[in-house]
Amino acid sequence: MSEKMALKLQVNGAERTVQAWPMARLLDVIREDLGLTGTKEGCGEGECGACSVFLNGKLVNSCLVPAVQCNGAKLETIEGVSPTSTDGAQLHPVQEAFLRCGGAQCGICTPGMVLAAVDLLKRCPDPDEEQVRDGLSGNLCRCTGYVKIIDSVLAAAKSASPDGAKAVAK
């Protein structure tokens, strides 16, 4: 039997402290203690990627990270991808591309998929289709057959390049 710990996190740029069991899953801390429900649970075993977040800048499956390993960490969730996104003002280029290219259908994998795509484009700003297929292979989507997700990521990559601003609109 343990006690709850004071878990300090920088969440999407803001300092937060919550009380959490050391072995609580980061996913549950995000959804229940931080109230950020854009991070989804699809499988609870690191297979589907719906719970993907950035922990200290690295993409992780938040269902596989115990709270005890997050103290003092910097956390970014879908809600923080574009600071003004939730009020509808501005989307991250990857979100914009998913919206325009049909990358989201039922939407449940979308937050994790968007973060995996952001991660991929950080590592590999101008990927080819095979690199996108490999880069997103930890995020399962049952609706799309991945075609439009891949198109979204390729379009987002182009929009970020100097002459590709209009490519997102397809």
Binding site: K58, V60, L64, A116
Partner: peptide, 9 residues
Amino acid sequence: TGAAAIQNR
């Protein structure tokens, strides 16, 4: 081994 998110952890 897994994919990106697993490989990071």
